[in-house]
Amino acid sequence: MTDPLERFAERPSSRYGPRRAHARQPKKHRRLRRAVLVLLGVVVVAAGGTYGWAETRLDRDVDLGAYGDRPPAGEGTNYLIVGSDSRDGLSEDAVQDLRAGGGGGRRTDSMMLLHTGANGASLVSLPRDSWVTLPGRLDTTTGKTKRPEGDKLNAAFSYGGPELLVHTVEKNTGLRIDHYAEIGFAGFVNIVDAIGGVRMCLDRDIKDEKSGADLRKGCQTLNGKQALAFVRQRHQEREGDLGRSKNQQKLLSTLAHQAARPGTLLDPTEMGPAVRAGLDTLIVDEDMSLPDLSKMFRAVQSVSGGKGKRINVPVSGFGVPTSKGNVLKWDPDRSARLFDDLRHDRPVRETGDSPR
């Protein structure tokens, strides 16, 4: 005998059965849609407020065309990303704690050329000890124009700031720099701390008195102070400045990848501190916009995600003695091929391996 309750459940036309359940369903969907819309509204308003505030904080202080005589525009977009040793935003105690002493002013601690285009992103390290030709420039001590001369790449920044550095990179690579972004010690440390540290895996112990690095082999999360010491140390690197450039490239792409994780981008309480930390010491070119910065950030993040390439400018020798000290000399054929590929936005053939 069939249970009356089972017969009741089987009746499709029952006044109190399935019809009532169907009647409740639209209300449930409406409530869900309202909740989603409210959540999106909060995120958009918060992000919009951060966007407007950030636009007013960008320090657009670099004139890319200050020296004129620039290469023609190529295909794709080229960014020059610079880490400087600027102490702006650091107290005297912080300078001591971060081992950030060593003179006033600001100099380049790292330089990277980021190219984006039809074939994805390529991040090319330009070691600061690279031997390049410095274009003619005004000598502020004599008031005369100096003739082009050989010197280390970071000397361009010391002599003429971002403008001369951009001019020097353009003259030695043949690439037109479309955008410039520079961040100092304080901004770097604060960004790493704001996102909760950066996860790195080291293949050996690193201890360096000058930078303050004291790290153990293995995977670990570096705080801002430790990350800064890691990217500044070079005395334990077999390739010296070239080895340091590789470390900087690896940490930058990893940092961008972690900062772009969904929890950070969608949570305004996390996004705000990271944005504020970066803008504190960020210097960009006159035409840089927040969308441009966002594109640059996403391109660096894509390199870490395996969708782009990390390359060191090909060198024919490191530790080469000159009148300006030991330098890195670019391989003329391989570096020319690399920059030619970037200029024409072709797939990059160069691997950037160590000297052959």
Rank of each mutant, 00 (worst) to 15 (best):
D292K: 14
K250M: 12
V275R: 06
V284Q: 10
Q248R: 05
E286Y: 01
L255H: 03
D267L: 03
G272A: 13
S316L: 07
K246P: 00
Q258P: 04
T322P: 05
A299N: 05
V315G: 03
D287S: 14
V320H: 08
G263S: 11
K295D: 12
Q249N: 07
V320R: 10
V313P: 05
Q301W: 01
G263F: 04
S304H: 13
T264Q: 12
P273D: 06
Q258D: 04
M271F: 13
Q248W: 11
K295Y: 06
Q249M: 11
D292R: 14
K309V: 03
G317C: 10
V284D: 10
V300A: 02
T281V: 04
T264C: 05
K250Q: 12
A277L: 10
A274D: 04
G319P: 00
R276Q: 13
P314V: 08
L279M: 09
P291R: 06
G278S: 12
V315P: 03
V275Q: 05
A260Q: 14
P268M: 12
T281W: 00
R298K: 15
L252I: 13
D280G: 06
G306E: 07
S289N: 09
E270N: 08
P321T: 02
R276A: 13
S253P: 05
L293P: 04
N312P: 02
I311Y: 07
G263T: 05
G272L: 13
R310Y: 00
Q258L: 07
T264Y: 01
L282D: 04
D267M: 07
L251G: 07
K246N: 07
Q249F: 10
S302W: 02
F297W: 06
E286G: 07
S289A: 09
G319F: 00
V313A: 10
V300Q: 02
E286F: 00
P262N: 11
V315E: 02
P262I: 06
Q258F: 02
L265E: 05
S302T: 08
L266E: 11
G306W: 11
K309E: 11
P314I: 03
D285N: 09
A274Y: 00
K307S: 06
L279S: 07
D267A: 11
V303E: 06
S302P: 08
T322H: 11
V275E: 03
L282Q: 06
T322C: 09
T322F: 00
K246T: 11
P314N: 07
P314F: 01
R310G: 13
R276W: 04
G272R: 14
P321N: 08
L251V: 15
R276I: 05
I283L: 10
A259Y: 03
A260Y: 03
L266R: 02
G319T: 01
G272D: 09
G308V: 08
P314W: 02
S316H: 01
